[in-house]
Amino acid sequence: MSGNNEDYGPSLLRGLWALTVRELKKWLNDPIMLLMFVLQPLIWMGLLGKSMNLGAMFSSENLVNIPIPDKIPVPGDYVTPKVEGYVYISGSWIHQSLQRMFSDIGESVMKNVFGVSDYFSYMAIGMISMIVMTTTMFSGMSIVWDRRLGFLDKVLSTPVPRGAIIFSKVLNAALRAMLQATVILLLAVLFGLRLSPTFNMMNILGIYSAIFLISIGLSSIFLAFSLRSTRLERPMQIVSLITMPLMFASNTFFPISMMPNWLQSVAYVNPLSYLTDALRQLTILPLDASRILVDFIYLGVFASIFSLIGIVLSWRYLTR
């Protein structure tokens, strides 16, 4: 028998790495994919972030068309000291005072509602959440192709641990999401995102771990689902069906406190809210230790439950 290799043991890590690198290569070798990957957040930030300039809504310049008569009669009873009859105040003086009073109100309204004074910073971080969510959902879907093209069956006939097949997809999703988040954050800083003064290496680590947690939860469940659907269209439809509601029933683009009660209760179970909150605290808001702890605990619980379900379902499918 010319050389046989029954002694070579395939290991989980080796297989995991090989399969993950395959996925990443497919993606990084494709210049168009990479371009889209930078272009997508760029367009969103440029259009949504810069056009929806909510801060400007509350600026004094928006008072110009408010009709103020030239002379405003004030009953003598209202002025101190009291006088008989009416006192007349010039309208232009009122106008000036109003402008003076409201020149700072925009900033305070923004700060009260969004926590930061510019909407762009608020939205840019929401963008990261949104892209992390879509990327992780979509990347598990490549397994539909692997199955249709027979690649999956071939891999299943090799001694590579079944876990490596599942984890490679999940890991790939998480790595992609982290990379995309980095690109968006860099672009956002370039476009004028104001990082909080306490931002440091630990924050970056925190950002990555939050993204990692949500990615493994979301991608495992989508992997299990994609494995069972024979056509790519089905998981695609599910993704497009749930991304919008998940996005808007969370603090991705708008604060939860401004929502009606029923929507608030949805937003409070939506893992995306916790991801976005954690990311904002780590980048633009002053860090609140107890709040971020809650965020991470929620994300951790979400990741463990969903990845457990996803992995069990995938496992059952792969060993049918």
Partner: peptide, 19 residues
């Protein structure tokens, strides 16, 4: 895998066997 070279494909198979 269409996006990989012939050599990379064989090496991927080899990795799966732990060679």
């Amino acid at each position: 895998d269409e996006d990989l070279t012939g050599y990379e494909n064989i090496m991927l198979c080899a990795d799966l066997y732990g060679i």
